[in-house]
Design a protein around this nucleic acid. Structure first.
Lengths: 213, 213
DNA sequence: ACGCTCTCTAAGCGCTTGCTCAGCTTCGTT
DNA sequence: AACGAAGCTGAGCAAGCGCTTAGAGAGCGT
C-alpha cells in the first residue's frame, strides 16, 4: 500500500550493490562505527576490526576513509530520493502522495536509523567535491517534496502560505527521526511513519477538520 | 511580547557568566570551532589559536577538552530550558503559550545556531556522567512541552491523540533548525519562529480552521 | 608445473593528537 | 623592595592517527 518496500533481510539496508563481499563487510562495519561514534571519532582500525580484517585490507577496496563515507552517503541519498520519487509519481491526490512520501521516508529513517544518521549528519566530513555532489541530491529531495505541496495548493487540497518554508520544515521533521529514533523505544517505524504522515497533513492544512480519528 | 529576550550584544550568546575573561574567550572559540568542524575534528591547538593563546593556556582554565564541551552544553541547555519554562508559566491559554514557546525556542536556535549546533548534536561526545546530566535536562525540556500540550487537550483547545509523540515531533522540528539555519539565507530568525509557531499550532489541531491568514 | 592476479597481513612511517611541565612575566600585598 | 600567587608560553612526551609497503597465500588459465 505504500511507495517503498524494504528488503526483508537483516536489520540494516540492502548493500547488495556493493560487490566484493569483503568491500561490503567493510562498508557495513563503517556504517555502524560512524553511526555510533561519528566519522571523525572512528578509526580505520576500528572499521577493519569490525569487519574481521587487518587495517591494511581497507585500502585494497577504498582509497581513503573519506571514500567510504562518500559511498555510504551516496547510496543512502539515492535510496531516500527513490522513496520520495516513488510516492510523488503515484496516481493519487496530493494529500495521498504527500502522506505516502512522509510515511515511507520516515519509516526508512527509523528502520535504517544507523545508516540515516551517517547519511544525514556527516555531510560536513566529506571533501568539497563529494559534498557538492551530495548537496545536489538534497536539492532534488527538497524539490520533490515542494512539488507535491505546490500541487496540493494548486488543487485546493492544501492551505499553505509558504510552500518552500513548509517543505523545509517537513523534511527537517522527517530527517530528525534518524537522530532520536531508538529501536528499543516505545514506537515501531510503522507507528512513527503513521503519526508523522498525519502531522504533516495537518501542517499543510489538509482535510475538513481532524484528520486524526 | 514574547517569553525570552536575547542580550542585545554581539552575534553570539551571553557567556557573561563565564568569569575569567580568558576562560570566556576560550569557550567562545571552542563553540565556533565545534560548530564548524565538530568536537572530534577540533584540536585544542585550534581552540587556543582562535582565542589568541598558546595550547597550554587552555589547561589552566579547563581540565580537559571534554570539560569545555560540557560547560558549553550545560549553559546552552539551561538557557533553552529557561526559554521554554518562561513560556509555560505565562498567564494565557495553552495555544498562546505553546506558540510562544515554539517561537522563542526556534528563534534562539536560529539566532545562536552555532551554539545550538554544539549543544544539540555533540551530546555523544560527552563522558558518561556529563552526558547523563545533560540527558536529564532534555527530559525536563520534553516534559515542559508535553505539559503545555496536555493542558491544551484537557481544555479542549487542542485535538491530539498522542501527546508524547506529538511532543517529540514538535521539539525535533525546533531543534533541527540549528542544523539547517543559515544567517545568510532568506529567512530571519523571527520569520522562522513565526512560521514554526503556526505549523505547530496546526500540528496540535488548534483553531476552527486555517490559523494561517 | 608455472606464473599471474587478487586478497590479505605484519610491520611500521611520518605526523598529529591531547596534554604536561619548567620557567618567565605580571600582579597585589606587605 | 621583597614575595608568593596567578596567567601564560615554548618545548616536548607518549599515544594514536591515516595510510604504505613488502611479502605471503590462494585460485586460475595455460
Amino acid at each position: 500500500m505504500s511507495a517503498a518496500e524494504q528488503t526483508p533481510g537483516g536489520e540494516d539496508a540492502s548493500w547488495d550493490e556493493v560487490v566484493p563481499e569483503a568491500a561490503r563487510r567493510l562498508l557495513v562495519a563503517a556504517v555502524e562505527a560512524f553511526a555510533e561514534r561519528g566519522y571523525h571519532a572512528t578509526t580505520t582500525r576500528d572499521i577493519a576490526g569490525r569487519a574481521g580484517m587487518s587495517p591494511a585490507a581497507l585500502y585494497i577496496h577504498y582509497k581513503t576513509k573519506e571514500e567510504l563515507l562518500h559511498r555510504i552517503s551516496r547510496i543512502g541519498h539515492d535510496k531516500a530520493l527513490e522513496i520520495l520519487r516513488a510516492a510523488e509519481l503515484r496516481e493519487a491526490g496530493a494529500a495521498d502522495r504527500l502522506a505516502d512520501a512522509v510515511r515511507s521516508f520516515v519509516r526508512w529513517h527509523a528502520e535504517h536509523h544507523t545508516t540515516a544518521r551517517v547519511v544525514q549528519y556527516e555531510l560536513d566530513a566529506l571533501g568539497p567535491e563529494h559534498r557538492a555532489e551530495i548537496v545536489e541530491l538534497r536539492r532534488e529531495t527538497d524539490a520533490t517534496v515542494c512539488r507535491i505541496i505546490e500541487e496540493g495548493v494548486a488543487a485546493g487540497e492544501f492551505d499553505v502560505a509558504d510552500a518552500p518554508g513548509t517543505t523545509v520544515a517537513v523534511l527537517s521533521l522527517c530527517i530528525d527521526v534518524a537522530r532520536w529514533f531508538n529501536p528499543r523505544g516505545r514506537r515501531t517505524p510503522d507507528e512513527v511513519g503513521a503519526l508523522y504522515a498525519d502531522l504533516v497533513l495537518r501542517m499543510v492544512g489538509y482535510g475538513p477538520r481532524g484528520v486524526q480519528k
